[in-house]
């Protein structure tokens, strides 16, 4: 990691106060007011297997009480308990970057599920006074469009995973998670961000973790969710467009885009998440946004999004 790290300190994720024995990126340092610790991350021994557990993937076990055990040979073992505690046993020789990728990825998703949130696989930007989320398959341009909107002066709320509190009284709230942007390399070049600002995130992916201070401002306050776009890229030239999705399609889309959905279903959240998807679909417009696979036209798509959101 390029950023320096602090040991035995407090960090923030989604407004949670996270106390960690494991060093985390400095840009996640807790700067908020004095409040009780929500989540403890500790170094320790993780058992070979959980008792009474289902093997959800070759890497993940979920126990009857919702506790999860993740094992990735290059990074190590992670035990995630009750949304409050994470035990990390790094693999011999694992770098902190390797340990962080899974801690700030899958483990973060598991914590969201254990804490009753709706983590959507989406990038999210503040437009006006609300949050706008972008879903889509890998390569559809979520992060790229988010970065383009940030460059137009909007603040980044979440990248990669958008944590939504569906229980909030006045409608779904987005809880900003971490100030990193993951962009495809060609997209970065179109945005003209100097390559040396970046650190490689995961060797096999042509993606980089970009400290957000490089291109705009990161936001920490919860924001009302205002709209969701499903991105679809078209290679063929033609008009870009955005159509409102019918309720059923919107619920199906949102359910399908839940981050670490199989893990959550193994925790028994299927019905809760389905209800959550319906709550989101009845609260905000969900649109399918088709755009051409042409990075030179990013600004036009960004402007269309601004107009649709009513800026």
């Amino acid at each position: 990691m390029s950023s320096s790290s602090v040991d035995f300190s407090d960090f923030r994720l989604c407004g949670w106060r996270v106390r960690s024995e494991l060093s985390l990126p400095e840009d996640l340092a807790w700067v908020g007011p004095e409040q009780p610790v929500d989540i403890d991350i500790r170094l320790g021994k993780v058992p070979d297997a959980l008792i009474d557990a289902v093997q959800v993937t070759p890497f993940l076990q979920v126990a009857g009480n919702g506790d999860c055990r993740l094992e990735v040979s290059a990074a190590g073992r992670y035990l995630v308990r009750q949304g409050r505690e994470v035990i990390v046993q790094p693999a011999p020789g694992a770098t902190s970057a390797e340990v962080h990728v899974f801690l700030l990825g899958t483990v973060f998703g598991l914590l969201c599920h254990q804490r009753g949130l709706f983590p959507l696989h989406a990038s999210c930007v503040r437009i006006g006074d609300g949050a706008v989320a972008f879903c889509g398959t890998s390569g559809a341009g979520k992060s790229t469009l988010a970065a383009s909107l940030v460059r137009r002066g909007h603040a980044l709320v979440s990248d990669d995973v958008t944590a939504i509190d569906i229980g909030a009284a006045r409608g779904p709230l987005v809880l900003p998670a971490m100030p990193r942007m993951r962009l495809w390399r060609d997209a970065l070049e179109a945005l003209a961000v100097p390559r040396e600002v970046l650190t490689r995130d995961r060797i096999e992916l042509e993606k980089y973790a970009l400290p957000v201070s490089g291109i705009g401002q990161f936001l920490a306050e919860p924001l009302p969710l205002r709209a969701i776009f499903l991105l679809r890229s078209e290679k063929a030239p033609g008009l870009d467009g955005a159509s409102l999705m019918p309720a059923m399609e919107a619920v199906a889309l949102l359910t399908g885009q839940i981050y670490r959905r199989r893990h959550a279903e193994a925790m028994g959240r299927r019905s809760e998440l389905f209800q959550g998807a319906a709550r989101i679909a009845s609260s905000v417009p969900v649109r399918r946004l088709t755009r051409q696979l042409d990075l030179g036209r990013l600004d036009e798509v960004a402007a269309m999004v601004e107009e649709l959101v009513g800026l």
């Binding site: 019918p246 309720a247 059923m248 919107a250 619920v251 199906a252 359910t255 299927r270 019905s271 389905f274 209800q275 319906a278 679909a281 009845s282």
Partner: peptide
Amino acid sequence: CLSTEVDSETVLMSV
């Protein structure tokens, strides 16, 4: 079968 209401529509999902 899970069901929920979105606006005036009911959405069903087969588990």
